[in-house]
Simulated assay, not measured.
Amino acid sequence: MAEIQLRNVGKRWGDYVGVDNFDLTIADREFLVLLGPSGCGKTTTMRMIAGLEDATEGEIVIDGKVVNDLEPKERDVAMVFQSYALYPNKNVYENIRFPLKVRKVDPATHDARVRRASAMVELDDFLHRRPAELSGGQRQRVALARAIVREPNVFLMDEPLSNLDAKLRVSTRAQIKNLSHELAVTTIYVTHDQVEAMTLADRVVIMKQGVVQQVGTPVDIYDRPANAFVAGFIGNPAMNLIEGVVSGGTFRAERTEVAGLSAPQGAVTLGFRAEDAQVVDTGGQINAPIYTMELLGDSTMVSVRINGALVSVKADKTFRGRIGDPVSIAVPAAQCHLFSAISGERIHA
């Protein structure tokens, strides 16, 4: 197994900074998710670990060994790509077996290893088929089995679910979660989908424009986002963010007044989660007309507009209203987060 250290790793192309001063230790058998919007540097970071990109600065250490100058095949990592990269002329069995042939593994062990890997991803009934005869979810499982069969020290997964439909994403995500537990191999997983990150990860690294914004468990990041960017990126829906001013412990913005806050005076961004507020008859901290409603089954998402931003709250599933109806929203001060209006950093009361 392998611990991975990224020691002040950076990647630059001329003046463009792809990854800046990435410094992190990934524990043996940890499932780490790199999360962020397109272009934030998460895939570049993974490719540097794999050896597909050269680090401009810093050291990459796998299992105590600096690997910056090693070829990808010498790093004992297996990578699952967004595109399945299967051989169309080979059946599933041979696609899974291929890494063993390339690495000149004892042929006498091939069949047992291929069948063990295929069983883990429930492909035993499809070993004779070619990729063109498989669904997207089945092809992705072949790609997973091909990585598993190598028994590597490190798994690298680059947005492996992005080509699947919503239902398949849920089932395959569950399969990856179970596999990570069963295989107990250090795994680095890249995604822009925060639901994947929150459900799969032991720890999440959130990136923006090549810079790490926060590292923590999913609960840590959800409950105490380090800055307004993280707050607005994590959660479904994301945290509500309202720009306003604090004076005398009270936050004020358009149609909004939240008292009882412990914060310095001045311009701030107030945040709260949709599930931490509620629709009330009267006396709420936000009073505005309904902008839109969404029936979610277990609840009703009610949204209003404050300072041009959409602010959402989860109401009871029995809530009934129409667009334009006035609504009062209770926002408990204890559930509020405050961020600097200038830097976006969290204000620690």
Rank of each mutant, 00 (worst) to 15 (best):
D158C: 08
L179Q: 05
E59L: 12
R169Y: 11
L270A: 04
E3I: 04
A226F: 06
L52R: 10
G14W: 03
G244N: 02
E182L: 13
F98C: 03
H181L: 15
S303H: 11
G344V: 11
D15P: 00
T45N: 08
D193Q: 13
S328E: 14
M198R: 10
T256P: 07
T292S: 14
G244V: 00
P37L: 13
K42L: 13
K42D: 05
V246H: 09
S303R: 14
A341Q: 01
S262L: 10
Q213V: 09
D124F: 03
P326A: 13
A117G: 07
D54Q: 15
D158K: 08
P37A: 07
D23Q: 11
C336A: 15
D325C: 06
E122V: 02
V280W: 07
R116P: 00
V80A: 08
N307S: 15
R224K: 15
I96N: 03
R129L: 12
N21Y: 03
T44I: 08
N91V: 07
T318L: 07
L310G: 01
V204H: 03
L270K: 07
A288T: 01
I188K: 05
F251W: 08
D111K: 15
K42N: 05
T186N: 12
E275K: 09
Q213N: 06
V246S: 11
E30H: 06
V121A: 12
R252D: 09
D298Q: 14
L134F: 07
E151R: 15
D111P: 00
A333D: 05
P160L: 14
D125C: 01
L296G: 11
C336N: 09
K90E: 10
R75H: 10
F22H: 00
V258T: 06
P332W: 11
T217A: 13
W13H: 08
N287T: 12
D28C: 05
L144P: 00
K42S: 07
F22D: 03
P99F: 03
S180D: 01
R203I: 13
R47G: 01
T45E: 14
D76T: 11
L100K: 11
F319L: 09
V258Y: 07
A238D: 01
N8P: 02
R47Y: 12
E345N: 14
I342Y: 03
R113C: 03
L164T: 06
E159R: 13
H110E: 13
D281A: 15
L164H: 06
S328F: 13
A112P: 01
V246E: 11
K65W: 02
V311M: 09
A253K: 06
G36P: 01
L156V: 04
V17E: 03
L338Y: 06
G260N: 14
E159W: 12
K101F: 01
R255P: 00
T318M: 08
A2V: 05
G321A: 15
